[in-house]
Design a protein around this nucleic acid. Structure first.
Lengths: 230, 230
DNA sequence: TAGTGGTCTAGACCACTCA
DNA sequence: GAGTGGTCTAGACCACTAG
């Protein structure tokens, strides 16, 4: 007797797909049909097919049925390291320098990312990250002082702003956006690259429940690559 | 009456954890207890807690119960979408055009990424991906013809090279590298951007066991961002 | 509008593992 | 040994959506 666990059912269906029994893009049997042919309940088939859908092997739609995905979705577990760790991983010495710190600057894009109105006080911070005293990345950050009042008087000479925040403030969720951007005059000067140079850019906004904690833009000095395996 | 869907139950438990009702590392109520207090079946609680465990929020063990994880996992699940799906997700029509195809070109960088010597025949391919007939991304690819001889005569008018390969050749592992690069004269012309424009670039090399199948460089036309949640 | 997946329920048995 | 999660079942109703 073959096992009828959701695990076994999932692997049997996966094997059929791999064997080409169900061509790519075509519809495969419904839950009820599988349940009858495997001699198990529909609930079990449902769980097996849901797992395959989570993996990106099949695509499911009500009334539309379950179809073999034309192409599997490549997924990767990506860890975003701290800048300090990125530098130290290459055997170089990390340091950082706070270039600008104040509450004067108001940035519409930052407020939009944090979904905050003009009345919320923001601390603006610009930090240069160095590897062996050479520019490595430039960070422009805004911190919500209503959410993190203590940040206004934080000592950032030892810990960078990012590390201070990670230590002091838990965050519940975040959004990350990767892109390429041309270096502005100012950023180019700080990173010592030509204006207009292509910079790998990471935007991150972090939230504690409904309150935005901080948003930042990190511009890496070329050459820089973010590598991972799939 | 509050909803008793597994989704609602999951969020209510998550909220309690966030609120500090269950301190980190401590044991939270069992499935039966939750079911009684929420007025739903144990199956529903089970699914909710399983989801939280998948997220890394809690840790479960038979007899040991369910515990709040001391630290949430700092990882992000990054899905690399297919170009076709990226385009179609924005409601535009996808198409592609093979610009260059041949075996003449030898690229040292490509061979290095694939860890192949000069004797291995490579097929070189350049493809322009379009959204509503507008340039969307430019792909430069090399395919190992020893590993995939059939690719030499593949019909790429319907399927793009990527989709053809995934259909015909399984791959076991891959390496992805994200970076920013200035547009060369040639790429700028194809993508219709200024030479030197900052392009978000994705390099991917895929392997079947020890044999490199293909390596590719995908250059996205600005503005392009790769977004994900953490 | 009919078909398919999404989900809930109540009950049951099993497997693991802590005390 | 006993408590907890893991899982299966059979039936039911609901929600979405393709045709």
């Amino acid at each position: 007797m073959t096992a009828t666990t959701h695990h076994a059912i999932r692997e049997r269906i996966r094997a059929r797909i791999k064997a080409g029994e169900y061509p790519l893009g075509t519809r495969i049997p419904g839950e009820a049909e599988f349940a009858a042919s495997f001699g198990c309940s529909r609930t079990t088939v449902n769980r097996a097919l849901r797992a395959l859908a989570d993996e990106g092997i099949v695509e499911r739609r009500r009334k539309g049925g379950t179809r073999v995905r034309p192409l599997p979705v490549p997924q990767a577990q990506l860890t975003i390291p701290l800048v300090r760790e990125q530098v130290e991983a290459t055997g170089r010495r990390y340091s950082h320098r706070v270039v600008v710190r104040g509450t004067a600057s108001t940035d519409a894009a930052a407020r939009r990312r944090m979904r905050l109105g003009d009345d919320v006080p923001l601390m603006h911070l610009e930090t240069l990250h160095l590897a062996d005293e050479q520019p490595f990345a430039f960070e422009r950050r805004w911190v919500n002082l209503w959410a993190v009042p203590a940040f206004a008087s934080a000592d950032l000479s030892v810990l960078s702003a990012n590390e201070w925040l990670v230590r002091e403030v838990p965050f519940s969720s975040g959004e990350v956006s990767l892109s390429a951007a041309a270096a502005s005059e100012q950023v180019a000067a700080v990173l010592r690259v030509e204006p207009g140079a292509a910079l790998f850019t990471l935007d991150r906004t972090t939230w504690l429940d409904e309150a935005a904690i901080t948003t930042m833009t990190l511009s890496y000095r070329p050459p820089y690559t973010l590598d991972f395996a799939i």
